[in-house]
Design a protein around this nucleic acid. Structure first.
Lengths: 193, 193, 193, 193
DNA sequence: TATGAATGAGCCTTCATTCAT
DNA sequence: GATGAATGAAGGCTCATTCAT
């Protein structure tokens, strides 16, 4: 008789959006962005194809929304880092935190590395990715300064490459990769014996 | 009109194949595998579209052939490594050699990283990639043993991740990445002071 | 919440219908029938998309209703024609009246010409359009008889084509078309010097 | 063995293009531009859908090509007009020529009137249509001057509207419209008694 | 050997319409 | 009476591949 209340509508919308985002994340990560069709996503999400276009600006808009949501999640995860007075402890937290975030958002990281190596697609995301890596470089350099390393810029590059390389190897074989042992060793390398 | 000799035919064949492989490598690396069309490759190579199917098993076969050729090139590059008695020197050579190979075959590495993060495509290449990384891991572990590091398996993972991470960062920004400084620092890390 | 009276309901209904018809007329005329979406109409009318289907038989039903309403308006406009004893004066009134109606209902005429040249759509309107033009032809022929023209059927065709052609040219460029001058000249042609 | 000769290829291309243009003209005219699908055109032409895109810039490009081809045909038809010293004779030729062209290219004129009343589509054709009608107006005005009519601009509008109105009525009912009788009467009106 | 015209499956997207509330 | 989330058929278009020459 009377139309749905605003609250009902909002719930419906959020449910549908979330289902689409979840399905898209899983499929993009598993099959790749280009090979994932809009049909697959809608089917996986259990909605009609057309619905996607009510909420996102096409397939690419869905990818963008996915990055926004996931980057927000990641940012929140990092925000929890405790503020220890010892810079070595802070760095250790950062490193371990990175791998914890990686583990918790495996699909997103897989997608992220996929997109980074996919010329046309990465550009569709605008400057977001570039800003992100710039921020990581800056943060790592601050850490290097704090722990008193000489040539902190190069050291930051090295730690960045190390974390990134490990993350990628883990993402490619999460079942078998010895992430904990590697993480321990990296932390030991930077926080002394 | 007049029948060509076998030698002429062979030369024609090899010329056409090489042109196609070169164009494919450049375009796959620059535009991504999925976004590169067969038409683009043929046009860039200056041959008709159909010719590709005379020599390769479609677009994916072309990619496979590309990997075979490039991996042969890379293997040859590494084969030149001198055989120094000092294991630290040998490791230093290996590391510097890796980055030298990277520089010389930028497009191939770009494509390689691209494909590695592209689920469906990577599988199309069969076990080649997996064997390759396994070989690298084994070689690095041998180096770690030779220089007497404890826990050589984990150390090998770390050096692999480091070289891979640096390579990838370089590949993404070859113009600005401080590859030499980073390489020097890595060599220093592993060959003492 | 509190039950509405019948009168209130009727007012609501009529308001919504009128808003939809007005929006549809403007948009169909401006954008064309096929390129106007139901969403555009509902948005322009400030109602929900679904409401349209409460009152009309879909998009095509809306078009039909629009024609019915507008043709009623037009018929009323013509009904006001005075009944002068001089057939020449009556014809002059008819001609001038036609252009006056055209000016007052520009959007409708634009839509009307649009639909007339749109095969599938015109048929959807049923025999209405055909009857209408038949009526015009008949009326014009009566005028031709009344002013004593030989071969009144052909003369009626000519005047019909003339009025129709002028109307269409005016509708295509209402800002610049010299409608008054043309109308004067036509009246002069038929009512003698 | 050897590839097709250039001549063979050209013949194939022209055949396909002509088939597509012919089918498109017939279908656009009969069903309307929007309601004609690319699938329908290809099927009617007896080729695969994709072929259309080898030769035309999509559906709209096909329409443009159609207008170019048809307008060239029409221009050629008019170019044959004899150059009589008597301006009345020249005008009579022009009027009769218009209707002859109309008869010979019925589908095109139907499409042309259809497109003229279809806002978005007409714009897609660029300034072509506008230039065309401007040229017609100018030519008619020259005729009016030549036969010594006062107020030639208004007279040109009237003759233009008349020809256009007749043409359109004929196009809508080519089977029954008394085109010859109407044409005779119009010529009589302008060339005296 | 080489060409390029032709194919058609499958993609992303739009939009009239339905229906639970 | 009114809402707007949801549907899904159908549209235009791309592109890997085939094949007659």
């Amino acid at each position: 008789m009377s139309p749905r209340t605003d609250k009902q509508n909002r719930a419906l919308r959020e449910e549908s959006q979330a289902r689409l985002l979840d399905s898209a994340l899983r499929l993009f990560a598993r099959e790749g962005y280009e090979r994932t069709t809009v049909r697959m996503i809608a089917e996986d999400a259990g909605v009609a194809q057309g619905l996607l276009y009510n909420y996102f600006d096409g397939k690419e808009g869905l990818l963008r929304a996915l990055f926004e949501r996931s980057m927000r999640d990641v940012a929140e995860s990092f925000a929890l880092a405790e503020d220890d007075p010892d810079p070595r402890v802070r760095l250790a937290h950062y490193i371990r935190g990175s791998f914890a975030v990686l583990r918790r958002n495996l699909s997103f990281w897989r997608l992220s590395y996929h997109v980074r190596m996919q010329p046309g697609v990465a550009e569709g995301l605008g400057p977001k990715l570039a800003e992100w890596t710039a921020a990581i470089r800056a943060e790592l350099e601050r850490h290097m300064v704090a722990i008193g390393r000489p040539d902190p810029a190069v050291e930051a590059e090295i730690l960045f490459a190390l974390i990134d390389g490990v993350s990628q190897h883990y993402v490619l074989e999460p079942e078998t990769y010895p992430l904990d042992a590697v993480a321990d060793r990296i932390v030991a390398l930077y926080t002394g014996e």
